[in-house]
Design a binder for these strands. Sequence first.
DNA 1: CAGAATCCTTTCTGATACTG
DNA 2: CAGTATCAGAAAGGATTCTG
Lengths: 139, 139
Amino acid sequence: MSPTHTGVTTPAELDPCGREDHPDCGIRDVLDRIGDKWSVLVIVELAGGPRRFRELQRAVDGISQRMLTLTVRRLERDGLVLRTVYPTVPAQVDYRLTDTGAGLTHLVKALADWSLAHRTVIAEARHAYDETHPDHDIR
Amino acid sequence: MSPTHTGVTTPAELDPCGREDHPDCGIRDVLDRIGDKWSVLVIVELAGGPRRFRELQRAVDGISQRMLTLTVRRLERDGLVLRTVYPTVPAQVDYRLTDTGAGLTHLVKALADWSLAHRTVIAEARHAYDETHPDHDIR
DNA sequence: CAGAATCCTTTCTGATACTG
DNA sequence: CAGTATCAGAAAGGATTCTG
């Protein structure tokens, strides 16, 4: 067949958007939304129920106040999270997933499942690569 | 990506993900892998079959040579993509998904499906938000 | 063709200080 | 409590030049 052919089965002919000119397919939309450093972690936390700002910050380990604000604002803007302000003193705010946002948790779960299922094989691949390419620095 | 190295010396408060209601542990792994600007687009393109370097660059609109190199190297390192060098002159290289990488396309498809299914409702949410918060600049 | 190496600009993040 | 406003460092990405 070919010179250096290895045992890899031919990848399935699946086109995410069903189109031949394979545009963005809208995938970038989702990834721009959940692909950042914190969004998914916030969503996961909110999947456990409504949370207040400080609760979220304590739950999502390592997030700064600024990034939590930004993250939660974007999610709100996209209609994935509902922000409710109670006119108390001091102010009290809670965040919860909208139905749309809750639907996203299924995708997140799928990602987690895949990740866990392939964690070791990927780790091994990395290790093998790093051994084969000692000088090469990818990270 | 994230400087977070999972697995090594796990602090007690960080659950190394054995539980069902705390699925975020492995998610970052996947997102660090496909959450960047180009990886998914490359994967989608490779889902259509093996591609050479230039083919990929032409197919993935807007990607620079540098980023294509980096992207494809990382995918190779993670064992998602197989890189084959043919000893011709000039050099000829092709990339194809490994079985692991091909499995990822299912996730990508799920992402695309979800994205397309919620594209309008999210767009409307954004629009509504921008109208309600004219002064606010999120993105 | 398929990169590697540089340089430079943009974007992202975290730390800090301040407010209703 | 729940933010806003700045600012500086880090990281990502792009453009260009140069090989085997």
